[in-house]
Amino acid sequence: MSEAPDLSEAEALAAEHALGVLNARERAAAETRMATDPAFAADVEAWRNRLAPMLDSVASAPPSPELWRRIERLLPANDNGALMNRLKFWRNSAMGGFALAAASLAAVVVQVNQPPVTIEKQVPVSPQGQLLSASVVSQDSRVQPLFVAAYDPDRKSLIVTSLLPEGSERDKVHELWLIAGQDKPKSLGLVESGKAKVIALPTELLAKMADGAALAVSLEPPGGSKSPDGPSGPVIGVGKLSKL
């Protein structure tokens, strides 16, 4: 198995932030970086512009009736005793808060006296190539979506998001394949359940990423397929690339 090279850390983070697959901590860190790193902010906006058409192809899913009841069970009850305890805590903390405010004010004065930092805004480059997308669906009677993918020809990269529960492969791994024409399937690397991955495609595969080519996912032993001819395990999902 030959795995495609990954994008740089910054490119991958920008793509994942634009796709909305980061957790709360990672998302906060990405937003902080956007505020201080114009190049990174431009990368995020470029990915958002490129991936925006995918939203039109994703059907909305209404929440289950049980969802609100679960939320209500997680909310704290109206407990006056607990409220009074919180009020006592904040009253006892007030004097300490005054001291903290004074220290914060001093820090602000120091910051004001520092020379201003100029951040130049970088305008994202308008996309030139045609974005392709694919929905990799199961091959049984249920026709269940398993993965979604988008190919950005400008950045020569493929972003793949798993719709399966995290860790669902257990002692197996999912391997992504490109099927173009009569060629043998080409491995694009491993993709984890419940996660997104940005894959920088090797040069020899760029021309094969076209409308009508297909992506497939097979279930393989750890490390992926050892067969030079393609998947060694069952193919669990297939989807054709098409223009958005």
Rank of each mutant, 00 (worst) to 15 (best):
G230V: 03
I199W: 07
P228V: 11
K195D: 07
G237V: 04
S218E: 13
E175L: 11
G194A: 00
G230P: 01
I236P: 12
E204S: 07
L206H: 03
S193I: 00
L178S: 09
K172V: 03
V173L: 07
P202G: 08
L219T: 08
A210I: 08
M209G: 10
L206M: 02
P222F: 07
V235H: 12
K186R: 11
G223V: 11
P221G: 07
R170T: 09
E204M: 14
G167F: 03
K172D: 14
P234I: 11
S168P: 06
P228I: 04
P165L: 03
P231H: 07
S232R: 05
G212A: 01
A210E: 12
S193G: 06
V173T: 13
G224T: 03
K197S: 09
P185V: 05
A180E: 15
K186H: 08
K172A: 12
L205A: 12
L219C: 10
L201E: 15
P234S: 13
S193R: 00
G233E: 01
G230A: 02
D183E: 14
E192K: 15
D229P: 00
D183P: 00
A213D: 05
A210Y: 01
L188A: 10
T203K: 13
E166A: 13
P222K: 06
G194N: 03
W177H: 04
P234V: 08
L215I: 04
L206W: 00
A207L: 10
D183K: 06
E192A: 15
H174Y: 13
R170L: 15
A216G: 09
E169H: 05
E175R: 10
A216W: 09
A207P: 03
L190V: 10
E169L: 12
S218P: 08
S227V: 07
P221M: 11
G181P: 12
L201K: 07
M209C: 15
S232L: 08
V235K: 13
M209P: 13
A210T: 06
P222I: 06
V173M: 10
E220Y: 00
A207S: 15
V235W: 10
P228S: 08
L205W: 10
D183N: 11
E169G: 06
P165R: 04
E166N: 07
P202R: 11
L205Q: 14
L190C: 04
L190D: 05
K197A: 08
E192G: 05
I179G: 14
D183I: 04
G223L: 08
E166G: 02
L201C: 05
A213I: 10
V191H: 12
G230D: 02
I236S: 13
D211E: 13
D171A: 01
P185W: 02
G230K: 01
G181K: 09
G189Y: 06
E166Y: 03
E169Y: 05
L215C: 02
